[in-house]
Nucleic acid binder design. Structure first.
Lengths: 208, 208
DNA sequence: GTCTATATCGGGATAGAC
DNA sequence: GTCTATCCCGATATAGAC
C-alpha cells in the first residue's frame, strides 16, 4: 500500500508543480512530469485524465498560496499605514522565498484565461466589497477622494515586479544569481521605506 | 513586383508580431501567422527558415522599441529627479500605448533565455557603465551610499507591472477593459507624484 | 494501480511543381 | 517568389496486459 492512491497522487502533484512553475502550461511536457515523479505518462492520465486538469490543480494551489494571508491582512481592522506595513513584511518574504509563483500565475492568465476563470470565482474574492474597503478606508483616514486603487497597485508592483522580471533584469545588468538574491533581500527594508515616504503625498493632500 | 520580396517580408513580420506578442513563442503557430499575413506556411520558411529566426526578428524589434529612448534619457546630463520625471513621462506613455510588449519581452526571457542572449549582447548595453552611472549620480546628489539600483527598479516596477499584470488584476477586481484603461491613464500623473514624494526619503538620508 | 505499446493528431519543416 | 502536398517528429491520450 505504499505506492497506493495517497502517495502517488502527492508525488504527481509535487512533480507537476515543479515543471509547470518553471515552464508554464505550453512549455511543460507530460513526459517530464512523469519522469520527475518517477512514474510513466499513462499513470498521469489515470490520476488526472488530462493536462488541463493537472494544470488546474497546480494553479489552484499556487493561487491560494499567494492569496492566502493577503485577504486576511487586507480586511483586518487596522489603519492603512499599519496594514501596508504588515502586508509588505509578509509579502516581500513570501514572494522572495517562492520566486517562481508570481510568474506562474501571471503567465497562466495569458496562456489560459478561459480555463482559469472558474478558479477565481471559487476563490470568493468579492471584488465590489474589495473596492469599497479600499475606498472607505482612504476616505476616512485621508479625507481624500484619490483613487486608493493606485496605492495598492503600487505596493503590489514594488513587491512582485522585481521577482517576475528577474531573468530580464539579471540579463540587462549582467548580475549573477547571488547578487540579485542579495538585492531582493535588501528590498525587504528598502521597499517599506520607499512606500512609507511616498504615502506622505496623500497625507498632505487637500483634494477633499 | 507588388508582392515581391519587400512587401511580403513586411507583411510577414507584421503578422508575426501580432501573433507572437499575444501568444509568445510556444503558444504561437506558424499556421496562424501565415493566415494573418494572408499567405501559406511554406512561404514563411522561405523568408525566415525557422520559427526561431522569425521570433528573433520580432523580439529584436520589440526590445529596441522598449529600450530605445530609455538609454538616452538615462545617460543624459540631468539631475536625478529631473531624469526620473522625464523617464516616467516617456515610459508611462510608451508602455500604455504598447501594452503587449512588456509581457512579450518578459515571457521571451522565460521561454528562450539561451536564444535571446545574443540580442542583449548586440544591444550594447554595457552593464558596468550603467551601474557606475547609477552609483555616481546618487553619490554626488544625495551624498548617500544607498544602493541606487532600488530607485530605478522601483520606477520600472511602477511603470511596467500594472501593464503586465493587467489580465490578473482585471480578473481579481472584475474590471472591464475600459475601467482598467482609465486607471492606466490616471497613473500617468499618479506615479510621478508617488515617486517624487518617495524620493524625499533619500534627501533626508544621513547614512553617508 | 501500474506498466508497455500504440493510436491519433498537430505542428514545423521540406520537396517539387508552377 | 509562391503554391500544394507531404514528411516526420513529438506530444497527448488510450488500450489492454499484468
Amino acid at each position: 500500500m505504499v505506492n497506493s492512491r495517497q502517495g502517488t497522487e502527492e508525488k504527481i502533484l509535487e512533480a507537476a508543480k515543479k515543471v509547470f512553475h518553471r515552464k508554464g502550461f505550453e512549455g511543460a511536457r507530460m513526459q517530464e512530469i512523469a519522469d520527475e515523479a518517477g512514474i510513466n505518462k499513462a499513470l498521469l492520465h489515470y490520476y488526472f485524465r488530462s493536462k488541463e486538469r493537472l494544470f488546474e490543480s497546480v494553479f489552484r494551489d499556487a493561487f491560494s498560496q499567494l492569496m492566502g494571508r493577503a485577504k486576511e491582512i487586507f480586511f483586518s481592522e487596522k489603519p492603512l499605514k499599519e496594514k501596508i506595513q504588515t502586508f509588505l513584511t509578509h509579502y516581500l518574504e513570501v514572494i522572495t522565498e517562492n520566486a517562481y509563483i508570481p510568474w506562474f500565475i501571471l503567465n497562466g492568465m495569458y496562456e489560459r484565461p478561459g480555463q482559469l476563470k472558474a478558479i477565481f470565482e471559487q476563490a470568493e474574492i468579492n471584488p465590489p466589497q474589495l473596492m469599497e474597503q479600499l475606498r472607505s478606508q482612504v476616505r476616512k483616514e485621508y479625507h481624500s477622494e484619490i483613487n486608493p486603487f493606485h496605492i495598492w497597485l503600487n505596493v503590489l508592483s514594488l513587491c512582485i515586479f522585481p521577482v517576475v522580471a528577474k531573468p530580464l533584469i539579471r540579463e540587462i545588468f549582467q548580475l549573477p544569481e547571488e547578487a540579485y538574491q542579495q538585492i531582493l533581500e535588501q528590498r525587504k527594508t528598502e521597499v517599506p521605506r520607499f512606500v512609507m515616504q511616498a504615502l506622505k503625498a496623500y497625507e498632505n493632500d487637500e483634494n477633499k
